[in-house]
Design a protein around this nucleic acid. Structure first.
Lengths: 350, 350
DNA sequence: CATTGGCACTCCGGCCTGCGGAGTGCCAGC
DNA sequence: GCTGGCACTCCGCAGGCCGGAGTGCCAATG
């Protein structure tokens, strides 16, 4: 089947190009890969592949380079899952096993991922919306200042300061605390929000209707609940990400201005970064975004490989890497998936 | 005084070189700066300056470039404080005023600083050792699991989980809480640690001597105090820094491999970064480290401009920028100092 | 009809060469 | 001590040359 061989040629081109960084010619191809045909035949195949848009040549009489479309086909159909080496597996567990808290897990993951893939790694912190409430604590710093502490299943802690219009007593505080706990603990964030909201109007002091007057009621419930709800819907922190391995950008070699500069800028724009990684595939599914498939014009020569992590039924957040379109996709995909699995497991244990 | 003129020549060379990025020759010098002498005279001065090691020429018959020593002299003796423009001042306050918490202050500062100086900015989080204890809270998640929350004057929050060997009752917890509060609140970290340690042996249940047996006493005080002390001496988090403006590295132009790569690597090594910034000058004093004066061989072509921030008597932490030796020192120093002042003020208000 | 060897052609990249310009160092004169 | 003049150096750039790698096409072959 010549069709099969054409695909084999494409695969060979991608593999060679990825590791030589130079346009690959017909002769070198047949030598390195054991396709049992002559260079001339390969040339014919390459002509077809070029016509179909999978490869291109930088200039006449140069070797061929894969296009985005070529990489896409390669990733979709020509990739066999490359299992990690034993050393890599060992590296992963020894790297992640000592983590003590959420911050630690994230920062270790990002470092690990960047080292495994030799690319820039990105790990999003578990989003609020996907976690559950583990605990809520109300602390009276003074009789009129409450510290509201929200502890989530992921180990994340948010706190808010609430100024009361009138002092609160010990018993009152205890009652409020248990009410809030009852409503929120164990719930998903979204459910906790509605439960908390529902608990307000039943309280004395004010009728709690949404259109209450501008001056606040003396009852602290409303204020506390609002602080909690606010903390729970703080999507600003949903965009928290950790970035690592920026030094790998130095390996870009040529195409510096065109590729590295915009990426370097993107690295500090967490929102951009998350958009770049794209929708997280769940359950072992790895998302690959190649070059211009991404949402940003300036980043048309960078690819992103990402996946979701967290318990199977719900993805907590996204993690992945960003690099040049010319990258080792199979290896990178394997590494991303493996790290996501480990992180998931570790968060589960905690 | 020809000595004076020589210094003027040095200053002119530095200023020109900083903004043209090209070796500066005698003719261009007299034209751009109004020194009232001829190029030949300047050439003589330059010969002397070169002999003394303040400037050098990349190759024979090229213009002159300042050496590290030249920059040093420039910074020490030839710099007049350049006040910030009104626009810059406005930028600073509008940038920092909306900050809601410590993380926010730090991340805004780092962004601001990198934009003002167009360099890579580094802001260290307030160190534990320099803060005081604002509050401690003990929360019983279950009768045998305590969450110990430590709130510092800087707004920083640390929490630790303590597993007890035997359940603890409400009253017992309350007593323990007030004891701990009494010992720690308001104290500097170092003092709180000793006070807490002192409070242990007085408790019943065990004699609290340092050589107590391997099986833990039933009394929870020891465990709680230990968790607190551990949190207070967690120097790991003293090394937390925020980095911003890495995109400015893209402006390095030439000397890429030699300068950018090691710097890019350093950016992720927070310890390295802090060492690079050097000892923080306090009270408006800005520290400047030029090229090879720094501790790292590979970073011999980068400079650091830094200062401490925090209340006058005690510096909380360090903040500054890292960039090429060829930088606008006066402007950068002014920006660093200004940002440090603002950050200090904001942290003070909170 | 796919495959193959042969062949002429193209184009990049490295190398050398020549040249203009910017800058220097030195010297003699003021 | 400053200055103008002058010869010299050296970089950077443009142009021209050449070898090599690679291509496209074609005619021949199983």
């Amino acid at each position: 089947m010549q069709e099969d061989r054409r695909l084999a040629v494409l695969r060979a081109i991608v593999e060679d190009y990825v590791h030589t960084e130079e346009p690959v010619g017909s002769k070198a191809l047949v030598e390195r890969h054991g396709l049992g045909v002559s260079p001339a035949t390969v040339r014919n195949d390459m002509a077809v592949l070029e016509e179909e848009g999978y490869i291109t040549q930088p200039h006449t009489s140069a070797g061929r380079v894969p296009t985005d479309k070529g990489y896409r086909l390669f990733v979709d159909r020509l990739t066999t899952v490359k299992p990690l080496s034993a050393a890599e597996k060992r590296a992963i567990s020894s790297f992640l096993d000592g983590a003590v808290d959420l911050d630690d897990v994230v920062s270790r993951s990002v470092r690990l991922l960047s080292q495994l893939t030799r690319q820039v790694a990105v790990v999003q912190y578990p989003t609020l919306s996907s976690s559950t409430v583990r605990h809520v604590e109300l602390v009276a710093l003074t009789p009129e200042r409450l510290l509201v502490v929200l502890i989530l299943s992921t180990g994340r802690v948010e706190q808010r300061l609430v100024e009361l219009t009138s002092p609160i007593g010990e018993e009152e505080l205890a009652a409020l605390r248990s009410r809030v706990l009852l409503a929120a603990v164990g719930q998903r964030i979204a459910d906790a929000v509605t439960a908390l909201r529902a608990s307000v109007p039943e309280q004395p002091g004010e009728d709690g209707a949404p259109d209450r007057p501008a001056d606040r009621p003396a009852d602290p419930t409303g204020a506390v609940v609002e602080a909690l709800v606010e903390a729970m819907s703080d999507h600003r922190s949903d965009q928290r990400v950790a970035v690592g391995g920026a030094a790998n950008l130095a390996r870009y070699g040529d195409s510096f201005d065109s590729a590295v500069r915009p990426l370097l800028e993107a690295l500090e724009e967490h929102v951009v970064l998350l958009k770049l990684l794209g929708e997280a595939g769940t359950g072992g599914l790895v998302t690959v975004r190649i070059g211009a498939e991404g949402p940003y014009e300036e980043l048309s020569s960078t690819s992103a490989v990402s996946t979701g992590y967290g318990p199977e039924d719900q993805s907590l957040a996204t993690l992945g890497i960003v690099g040049p379109t010319r990258m080792d996709y199979p290896g990178t995909m394997a590494a991303v998936r493996a790290v996501a699995r480990y992180v998931t497991r570790i968060l589960d244990e905690a």
